[in-house]
């Protein structure tokens, strides 16, 4: 029984350690600039279906031009002004809305958000569709005009010196173990079987 108890206590303590050691400090994440926010639109699609909304968010990823119009995706989540690499507080998943608008308007966006960039923050006004009949039932906003509110920028993510030192130390240790394994580790290997013909 004692062995059992030891095992359970070790498991619980180990688990708690993993969770506690891994917790990041939490602050106040950036709130959405929109009312209703993208989450609000998803939560109550019927209420807003067909209504005109003004939506502000960070242009993410890329513009996908389809003829005279284009798709852009605007995120109004906790990272729309600053992303994690720049020190934004973790504030849950991304949230946003796809926007269908004239390609010329989409062309005003010069920076799209990704690992290396914080995208342009833009505002669009348009009709919200809970299930767009033109786009296979997608939830989207059809906008006619776009305004760049805040230009995007490059998001630097320099190498942290502490991590670099750790990387070198661990790599050297791994190399040493590889060498040791080559010298002493092969003795236990099973010799390849010879097929008898």
């Amino acid at each position: 029984m004692r062995h059992w108890l030891r095992l359970v206590v070790a498991f619980v303590l180990g688990g708690a350690l993993v969770m506690a050691a891994g917790c990041r400090a939490q602050g106040t994440p950036e709130p959405s600039p929109n009312t209703p926010s993208s989450s609000g639109l998803v939560e109550e699609p019927k209420k807003y279906d067909g209504s005109t909304v003004t939506f502000t968010g960070e242009a993410i990823g890329e513009v996908m031009v389809r003829g005279e119009n284009a798709w852009v995706h605007l995120n109004d989540d906790a990272y729309y002004l600053k992303n994690v690499e720049e020190g934004a507080q973790l504030g849950g998943y991304n949230a946003g809305m796809p926007v269908w608008l004239p390609a010329g308007e989409a062309g005003k966006i010069t920076t799209f958000g990704d690992y290396k960039h914080e995208g342009d923050v833009v505002t669009v006004t348009g009709e919200f569709h809970a299930a767009c009949p033109e786009h296979g039932g997608d939830m989207d906003i059809h906008a006619t005009a776009l305004e760049v509110v805040q230009p995007g920028h490059r998001a630097a993510d320099p190498i942290k010196p502490g991590k670099a030192v750790l990387a070198v130390a661990l790599a050297l240790l791994a190399g040493a173990l590889f060498a040791a394994n080559r010298v002493w580790g092969q003795r236990g290997e099973i010799a390849p079987r010879v097929r008898k013909g």
Partner: peptide
């Protein structure tokens, strides 16, 4: 910075 993350992780697995 991501390269460094992977060097650490690869080394940990190999160790």
């Amino acid at each position: 910075d991501t390269v460094v993350d992977f060097v650490i992780s690869i080394a940990a697995c190999l160790i």
